[in-house]
Structure formats: structure tokens, C-alpha cells
Amino acid sequence: MLNLLRKDFIALKSSLWMGLMFLTVFSAVFIPKHSSSVHLVGIYTAFATLSHATMIDVKNQNHNFLVTLPISRKNIVQAKYMMSIIISLVSVLASYGIHMFATSVFPVLNKPELTVMDIIGPAAIVLALASIYLPLFYSLSKKGTSIINGVFFILLLALAQPTAMFMNMINENRLHSDPTLYLILIGIILLFIVSYYIAAVLFTKKEL
């Protein structure tokens, strides 16, 4: 598992600037205009980085290389799911950090007060998206994955407003301790686990 994560970091090493670029661009776009920018910057950066990482794999027909190494296909899938958790946490925390910095340096931005839910919420949304995206990545061909990346990008644009509204509703109505919210979070974790098992089965059966 560690070797596979290491592999992903080596593969991404030369394009780490892409993650920083996503963070900078989305921050510049959302922070001045959007009250829910802390969520959107995190979600967009995380998903763009995840799909960039999978595109590097697809472009290099990485699965054909990985199956020659002494690792099981299950482990390959496990590592990618772990990678998606790391990417979402780092992106969401980076967005949180940028917003803390922005609100202290530019109080005129008039950003809402940051809470733990501003980290957990976007991270959960990214994991929910990854739960749908990753099984498709493991079952589709090179062309299919490119199409799925495009579809998800459009989906993300369409979901920006509802996400902002949902997160604002939580903040405004002070629903942070509402049990429904915790049920949703548990539901997302379960979805993520089920998604892993589906992706593992699909990839184990996939012919390369």
C-alpha cells in the first residue's frame, strides 16, 4: 500500500504545480465573489487534482504496468481510494488555510466564520463524488475515462450553487450538531466503502 502511494506521489511529482495552480485559480475565482468559497475551492481543487492523477495513469496505461508488479489488484484499488482521501483532505485544509489567511488580512471580504464543518462538509462531498468516479475509472477504457472526466467537470459546475446553498443552510441554521447531518456523513463513509468494493471487483475482472 505504502509503495503504491509512493508511486502515485512520484508520478505526480513533476505536476504538483498543477494542484497549486488549481488552488490559486479557484481561490481567485471564488473567494472575492462567493460566500461559500471555502467549500468550493476545496471541492474543486480536490476533484481537479484527483482527476489529473487518474488521467496521468490513463495516459500511461498505468494499469498494464502495475499488474506486472508483485501487488494484487485489490491493493491497487485500495491505494487509489487512500490517495483520494489524502487529496481531499489536503485540498480542503489548504482551502481552509487560505480562507483563514484571507479573512485575517482582508476583513473587507466579510467571510462567514469558519467552523469544523467547513472542513468535514467539503471533504465528505469530495469523497461522495470519488465514490461514483473511481469505480467508473476502474471499469472504463482510456477513452471512457476522458469522457467521464468531462462529465464530472460539468457536474461540478452545475453543483456549485446547490452545494453553496446547502453549506450556507447548515451554517445559518446552526445545524452543525443536527443528527441528520451525522447520518449523512456516515452514509457517505458507507458509500465510499461500498464504492471501494465495487471498484475492486470491477478491476479484478477487467482484462488488460
Partner: peptide, 12 residues
């Protein structure tokens, strides 16, 4: 058909 990461060096 050797499938390696094209953008990486041999060392990487």
C-alpha cells in the same frame, strides 16, 4: 509493450 510513465526519468 512496456507501459512506463512517459514523463518520468529512468531514475524515477
Amino acid at each position: 509493450d512496456c507501459f512506463y510513465y512517459e514523463h518520468l526519468t529512468i531514475r524515477d
